[in-house]
C-alpha cells in the first residue's frame, strides 16, 4: 500500500535536519532556513494528493 509515503517523509526530515545543522555550523543561517522550507514544501506536495484522495473517497462513500 502507500507505506513508502511515511518512509519518504522520514527521509526528507532527517536529510533536512542534517543539512540545516551543517549549514548552521558553516555560518550560513539563511541557507539552512531555505533548505528546511524547501523540504517542507516537498513533503506538502506529497501529502496533499493523499489527503484529497482520502476525503474524496469519504465523500463518495458516505454521500456527504
Amino acid at each position: 500500500m502507500n507505506e513508502n509515503l511515511i518512509f519518504k517523509i522520514a527521509a526528507v526530515g532527517i536529510l533536512v535536519t542534517i543539512l540545516s545543522q551543517v549549514l548552521k555550523q558553516s555560518g550560513r543561517e539563511e541557507h539552512a532556513f531555505l533548505t528546511s522550507l524547501a523540504g517542507l514544501l516537498i513533503v506538502l506536495f506529497w501529502i496533499v494528493p493523499y489527503i484529497y484522495e482520502l476525503f474524496e473517497t469519504m465523500r463518495k462513500l458516505f454521500a456527504l
Binding site: L5, I9, A10, V12, G13, T17, L40, Y50, L54, T57
Partner: peptide, 26 residues
C-alpha cells in the same frame, strides 16, 4: 527522532500515518 530537531516533520509523519490507516479503514 524528528521531534527534537524539526517538530514540523514529526507532525507531517503523524499526518501521513493517519492518512494511511484511514485509507485502510475506508
Amino acid at each position: 527522532i524528528l521531534k527534537h530537531y524539526k517538530p514540523e516533520y514529526s507532525y507531517f509523519l503523524n499526518l501521513g500515518m493517519c492518512i494511511c490507516v484511514f485509507l485502510y479503514v475506508v
